[in-house]
Design a protein around this nucleic acid. Structure first.
Lengths: 210, 210
DNA sequence: TCCTTTATCGTACGGCGTACCGAAAATGCT
DNA sequence: AGCATTTTCGGTACGCCGTACGATAAAGGA
């Protein structure tokens, strides 16, 4: 039926290999040559499956989106959105390159559309109009990405930066900053649920108030 | 007094040249060689003023931060934060590469610390604790970056993407999405102030409620 | 068998960040 | 004045990158 030499791999194998490289070696390690050797192919063979590197990144994003568990739509928009945000956070923690790869990327894949659909379904009880719902979903997604980014990076502030900040504080020009840092953090830790609740409840309530 | 051959340029001249290139040709055009020719120097001479390209980006971010107008702190946190967010938005629209360059970047510069200080001062009347105030500022900054990004990119959705979405909608699997898109946008436009108000008011009110 | 179609992948090009190092240009000392 | 010292300048080169091109290989159809 199909003429010509049969492909030695599939597009999904290529995308999976790229995701594996990104997970273990970081997004910067995802190069055409690196992914090709990952599946035991020559570098140029990848272009049989993927038009260029940028599209490969699109495919990676959509493919990991497929692994996000389907959260239920119960009719309680607050709980539903919180669950959706939690699923997003888990996904981004499992694939730390995702927040960095997400911006500037087209909404190409069906899994991304499915995610959008679930968010809209969760927001249905609010009675908000369509464009507003879309904006809220984009804002919530952006928030989760920002949160996970700071969460993953937060652990280790480089020495050089600490030195710069302390020397800046010594000038006395930043009293509020000095006070805020001095408070330290004996109290409660940030807790994703707490902040996600602020964002979600705050946004939706304000949007509904109009 | 100072020994050795005198420098032909200054660090600020280098950073300004890099900003000029980014403004006119995009962030991708900011390469060591390109910036060097911009100031009429050899490529390797740049390394006299900047340790590596990553630090150059840090310096660019901090330097444009210096041009952000100083918004007043009146005691009305809502108005003050909105003004601060508006100033940020203006800055990002003047330097469209800024939202893309901002994440993954260290808070190295004094101007960034000054910005943080202003945000903390604006939040002082809320009585929130230091760490919470810091988180709120980070979230608001992230929101503005996300908003401006979509604002700048929004104009032109590529044909290929439109085709993909319409074909996906034709399957009937995305009823909410179809409905939301069908609503179109005859009504009010997004308006930065409106959405910024949602975010700011929503976040602070929720945070204060605890 | 030979032709057509398709996939494989070696080679090569231009561009990137930047290590290395000799040349150039200033000052300070004798 | 002459020399040593210190600092900057920038040419060359290395190892990466994405990818255009084209020869080669492997399948089915005639």
């Amino acid at each position: 039926m199909t003429r010509g030499r049969p492909p030695a791999h599939t597009r999904d194998q290529v995308v999976d290999a790229a995701i594996r490289v990104a997970d273990t070696e970081g997004l910067a390690a995802v190069t055409i040559r690196r992914v090709a050797t990952e599946i035991g192919a020559g570098a140029m063979s990848l272009y049989t499956y993927v038009p260029d590197k940028d599209r490969l990144l699109d495919l990676m994003v959509d493919r990991v989106g497929a692994t996000m568990p389907a959260t239920p739509v119960t009719g309680d928009w607050r709980a539903d959105l919180l669950a959706l945000a939690g699923a997003q956070r888990s996904l981004m923690r499992a694939h730390p390159w995702l927040p960095a790869a997400l911006p500037n990327r087209r909404l190409t894949g069906p899994h991304m559309l499915a995610y959008l659909e679930r968010g809209l379904a969760a927001l249905a009880p609010t009675g908000l109009d369509g464009p507003t719902k879309m904006e809220l979903i984009a804002l919530i997604t952006g928030f989760v990405a920002a949160y996970v980014t700071s969460e993953l990076a937060g652990a280790a502030p480089p020495d050089e930066q600490v030195a710069l900040i302390t020397s800046a504080l010594a000038t006395g020009e930043f009293p509020h900053l000095a006070a805020a840092l001095a408070e330290g953090g004996p109290g409660r830790e940030p807790s994703f649920e707490r902040i996600a609740n602020w964002t979600i409840s705050g946004l939706v309530e304000q949007a509904s108030r109009e």
